[in-house]
Simulated assay, not measured.
Amino acid sequence: MTGPVRSVSQALAILRLLAETSPMSLSDIARVAGLSPSSCLNLLKTLVDEGAVERDGRTKHYRLARAWAAAEALRDGTAQGLIDRAQPLMAQCAERYDAALGLWKVISRERVRLIARAESKAGVRVAMADGQRQPLGGGAVGRALAAAQGVGRDELARRYAGVRWQAPLPFDDYAAQVARVGAAGFALDEGFTHRGICTAAVSIAPGFCLSASIFAGSRDPAEVTALAEALQRLRATLLPA
């Protein structure tokens, strides 16, 4: 069986990057995409020739071509609709359970991005930064997405390797946690990705995930399960009948 074509994957990574941040210089694109400047330049020339990317002759910066940007905006309209529906429900859940809720979107083979968040009004609370990104395999979000997508062991290992774990977590344990998501209905990360933070997560649609984070040790197991079940109810409300 043949594997993915590397140059195609790299070209798509550039398109996703420019969809997120435009315009960008050649050096910045190469650095973020993890490519050599020469390889990146060749890919960009091809994308320009194919009409997917435009180059500003004055600044020498690259941006997504208008037609592709319009298609990306149309796709993001789905995300915006989900955000609009989810935001008030997330705020209610955050306040009721004194947790930080996040709505995440897969943006590449490597990353997910926070596209909406809600926090409680407690004086001391978990907080998340707008637009933050994290490795695709990291946290409860990574486990929930992997379980929902039914990824194989090799792909799971690739995602696991891309995470800087803050507490030791052998791959076999990680894989076992992903395998348990189906039965539990939610994924859980207890301080492995972010020390001192316990996070539950549920996949809600292809490429999207909901999370709820609290301080580790601040709730007993029954309360953590209740928080996860609240996420499941929120998901059921958001998904069409």
Rank of each mutant, 00 (worst) to 15 (best):
V112N: 01
A144S: 11
G150L: 05
A183Q: 12
T193N: 13
M90R: 12
Q92D: 10
F192K: 07
G196T: 03
A99M: 03
A147R: 02
E72R: 13
V163M: 07
H61L: 07
I83C: 09
R85C: 09
G137K: 11
G142F: 01
D84M: 01
M90H: 07
V106T: 15
I204R: 00
A65T: 14
A122C: 04
G81W: 01
R180V: 04
A65C: 13
Y62K: 05
V112P: 00
L188A: 08
A91N: 03
T193G: 02
V141E: 04
F171E: 07
R111K: 05
G138E: 07
E72L: 00
I83M: 09
R111D: 08
H61T: 02
R85A: 13
I115D: 12
H61C: 07
A144Y: 15
I197Y: 12
T199V: 15
A129F: 09
W68K: 03
L74Y: 12
A100R: 06
A147T: 05
Q166E: 12
R63Q: 14
L156K: 11
W104I: 06
E190S: 15
Q166Y: 09
Q92F: 00
R96K: 00
A167I: 03
G185N: 05
A67N: 13
A86G: 05
K105M: 03
A184F: 06
L101Q: 03
P88Y: 06
R195N: 01
C93V: 05
E119M: 04
A73G: 14
Y97I: 00
Y62S: 00
A67H: 06
I83Q: 13
L145I: 10
A91P: 09
D172Q: 01
V124K: 13
G185R: 06
L136K: 13
L101W: 04
C93Q: 11
L74E: 15
H194V: 08
D189C: 06
Y97G: 02
L74M: 15
E72N: 07
G131Q: 06
Q177R: 14
S120I: 03
T193Q: 00
A184M: 14
V202C: 12
A71H: 05
R75T: 09
E155A: 07
R180H: 13
R63N: 06
D130R: 02
R143D: 00
S108T: 01
A161T: 11
A148Y: 09
A94Q: 08
V106H: 05
L74K: 11
G182T: 08
G162K: 06
L136D: 06
G137L: 07
R153C: 09
D130E: 14
Q134C: 14
P135H: 11
A65R: 13
G150N: 11
I204G: 12
F186N: 03
K121L: 02
L156D: 05
I83P: 13
Y62F: 12
G162M: 14
A148C: 06
A122R: 13
D76I: 01
Y174K: 05
V124A: 10
E72F: 02
R164K: 15
A147D: 08
Q132V: 12
A167F: 00
D173W: 10
Q134A: 08
R117Q: 12
R66H: 11
Q80K: 08
A86D: 08
M128P: 02
L188W: 04
L169P: 07
Y62D: 01
R180G: 04
V126Y: 10
G131S: 11
Q87L: 07
A70N: 11
A175N: 07
